[in-house]
Nucleic acid binder design. Structure first.
Lengths: 204, 204
DNA sequence: GAATATAATAAACACTGTTTAGTAAATGCA
DNA sequence: TGCATTTACTAAACAGTGTTTATTATATTC
């Protein structure tokens, strides 16, 4: 019964086709302008066909959200070789911010939008998020073990670090950094300076 | 020509009626479920009438956004009497977080959603935001003058503080704090503990 | 009282996500 | 090979959305 396998393969190919089209559209025009009908038009199928492969629009964007986490994870784990955990933490932080500034739509989907989280409610666990957060936890754990940062509860420290960098990026991508009344380049410089200051305050 | 004045008054009353209905609906059911048709139904006018008083849906939510800032401003300025600027900063921070946790929909509109910012692009200035941020700047300025916090650029420090508390609240309201796998009450405690730690790290 | 200006609306436009009922093609079995 | 069944797909509809236009009813001015 090789037919069943081929069918399974074809099903997966169709899912990939939809995801590819949706991702391209999403990165080009944003979430709101990426409609099921637009995707259907692009892949030359009827809108109803998409619902044979995905439960709803949220499920499509949950897959894109997972792919985005794969990209971020790879970027962050590039720094795994850095021996000094504090240096590693610094590199992770800067890469996280850089990712957010350069991929505002991905960042939105991963950490701001409600859409992919609706999906997670049904799946019990936010796997992608846990993976990245776990990496932060181990790095901070190393910092604490080597007394590189001020001693405190690991989770409280992790939330402090993540909240800060997320705050920087999310205020920027949702255009609240306009209060600084600076050009885009200058605003980004303030963000990185602020991160530098934060790291200094974190040190023992 | 007292008629013109009455007409102007009636126009303002109608605007207030729409805003009141929209606000009640928004706080009860959120942004997405607050449609122009629902508001029209509620105030017993046709949907088209609303467009005689507001340019579009965004303009309605810009007004609600401004009202929300009035509420937050009043809450934050309650601490104006605290003499020690560091104590004042601490109180401001905790009140900001409390406001976000207790009014997630308002917080959304003020600091996360795109809708009200679309309006601001046409108005040149984010008045409400500048007012609150200005209050943070003066408080931090006092802290620096009295050498209560580590010396650094005022704006960079302000962005650091705001980004951190915004990160805490926005990750919470957009349900990303689920990575902690804690009950709601415990999660909130971690947020406040994290703020305490942040303030410690900020001190000289 | 007639002419004009204002206020309100019904209906339409162009969308959206999603479901249902029906068709055409591929597959399983005799 | 021929027929029944399953699978893949879609046209059309449903119930919404924000917004605009043409029309009617009311109020104001002259």
């Amino acid at each position: 019964m090789a037919i069943k396998e081929r069918k399974e393969r074809e099903k997966q190919e169709m899912r990939n086709l939809i995801i590819e089209s949706a991702t391209a559209m999403f990165l080009k025009q944003g979430y709101d302008k990426t409609s099921i009908r637009n995707i259907a038009d692009d892949i030359e199928y009827s809108p109803a066909t998409i619902y044979l492969y995905f439960k709803d629009k949220d499920e499509i964007f949950y897959v894109i959200h997972e792919n985005a986490f794969d990209i971020l994870d790879k970027l962050l784990r590039q720094h795994e070789a850095i021996a000094d955990p504090l240096e590693r933490l610094d590199a992770i932080g800067r890469t996280y911010i850089k990712f957010g500034l350069e991929n505002p739509d991905y960042y939105d989907l991963m950490f701001i939008m409600r859409a992919p989280m609706e999906q997670i409610k049904n799946e019990e666990k936010w796997k992608a998020g846990e993976c990245a957060f776990g990496y932060l936890l181990t790095t901070l754990s190393d910092c604490l073990a080597q007394d590189k940062i001020r001693q405190n509860d690991l989770h409280v420290t992790a939330i402090q670090v993540w909240s800060f960098v997320h705050g920087l990026v999310s205020l920027y991508v949702r255009e609240r950094m306009c209060i600084l009344m600076l050009e885009d380049d200058a605003t980004r410089e303030v963000l990185y300076s602020s991160f530098t200051l934060f790291m200094q305050n974190l040190k023992t």
